[in-house]
């Protein structure tokens, strides 16, 4: 009797298995959270040193236009104005996303609704391949093909926001496309069937049903692409020109947050203002990527398909 009672009271094999499963997955998530917290703490603690130890005013940092962290300006304040880089970073990111989105959505529609077979066999592997091309190679193709082309068209040096936009457009295209494919695939098939059954043409179905139903996730795809573009460094650095000047038009040399960071971080001494100021740029990048993510979540929440 006792034995049976024991057996009944003791956790079953299945529930013991479940506990193990839970432990494994909880451990993994704990490790990841530890990693994330450590890198966030690391960047934040270094990034705010500009303001706490070097006493640069935050307002001046965000709105100043002079960037010479090594030298002091006339009034004895260090020249760390990040505005030109912030403006440029946003410009290239938004422009690249604007250009890439129609192409990416076309590619996604082609792969989900127009020619799924060719899409899956040919287009998808090639697009995945694009992700693996090192940014250096993109940068050099930009430097040897895109920059001379722009120079030829508009004169000047050819480096600038336009060149950066073109390079980033190609780089974010795979990201946005593959996420857009996911977004369109997530629209239930009966949406399509219902629309077609009502006599709608394929384009009417796409335009009035598919794109609308998938809109939140499509937006998410675009924002993901923007986050990727915002953080890209090596490729942009080669074509943007790296001159910390306010961009007057699309073809004058200017500098993004990442290009400045990558160019100079190896040349500065840790713990000094020039180095701290670069970490502050990294902190801006981090905060921006946080904003992008919150946007994604907000949009995602508003537009969940309720089935």
């Amino acid at each position: 009797m006792d034995e049976i009672q024991k057996k009944l009271n003791a956790p079953s094999k299945a529930s013991r298995e479940d506990v193990i499963g839970r432990i494994i997955s909880y451990t993994c998530i704990a490790v990841i959270i530890a990693l994330v917290v450590s890198i966030l703490y690391f960047i934040t603690s270094r990034g705010i040193a500009t303001f706490t130890t070097n006493h640069v005013s935050l307002w001046q940092f965000l709105t100043g236009k002079q960037w010479n962290p090594g030298t002091l300006s006339a009034n004895g304040q260090p020249q760390v104005g990040a505005l030109p880089m912030i403006v440029t970073s946003f410009s290239v990111t938004i422009l690249a996303a604007l250009v890439a989105t129609p192409f990416a959505i076309a590619v996604a529609l082609f792969m989900t609704d127009i020619a799924p077979k060719t899409g899956a066999k040919f287009l998808q592997p090639v697009i995945e391949l694009l992700v693996g091309i090192p940014s250096v190679v993109y940068g050099f193709i930009g430097l040897t093909v895109v920059v001379p082309f722009i120079r030829h068209l508009f004169g000047g040096t050819g480096s600038g926001i336009l060149a950066g936009t073109i390079v980033l457009f190609v780089m974010v295209l795979p990201t946005i496309s593959s996420l857009a494919v996911d977004a369109l695939r997530a629209v239930p098939t009966y949406f399509r069937s219902a629309s077609l059954a009502l006599g709608a043409t394929r384009f009417q179905t796409i335009y009035k049903v598919l794109l609308r139903a998938a809109m939140p996730r499509l937006l998410t795809a675009v924002i993901f692409g923007m986050a990727r573009a915002f953080g890209e460094a090596l490729a942009v650095q080669m074509v943007i020109g790296n001159a910390v000047l306010m961009p007057h038009n699309l073809v004058t040399p200017t500098s993004t947050l990442t290009s400045q960071l990558t160019t100079n971080i190896g040349n500065t001494i840790m713990g000094t203002l020039p180095n701290n100021a670069l970490w502050s740029l990294a902190l801006i990048l981090l905060l921006m990527s946080l904003v992008f993510n919150l946007l994604i979540r907000y949009i995602g929440k508003r537009g969940e398909i309720k089935s």
């Binding site: 430097l143 040897t144 120079r151 480096s159 650095q237 790296n242 001159a243 910390v244 040399p253 040349n267």
Partner: peptide
């Protein structure tokens, strides 16, 4: 003057060779 900046010999060489 504030101008274009590159951080490596290789990139500078390519840019000078191609930029009029």
């Amino acid at each position: 003057i504030t101008s274009q900046e590159q951080d490596s010999n290789g990139t500078v060489q390519k840019l000078v060779a191609t930029t009029p």
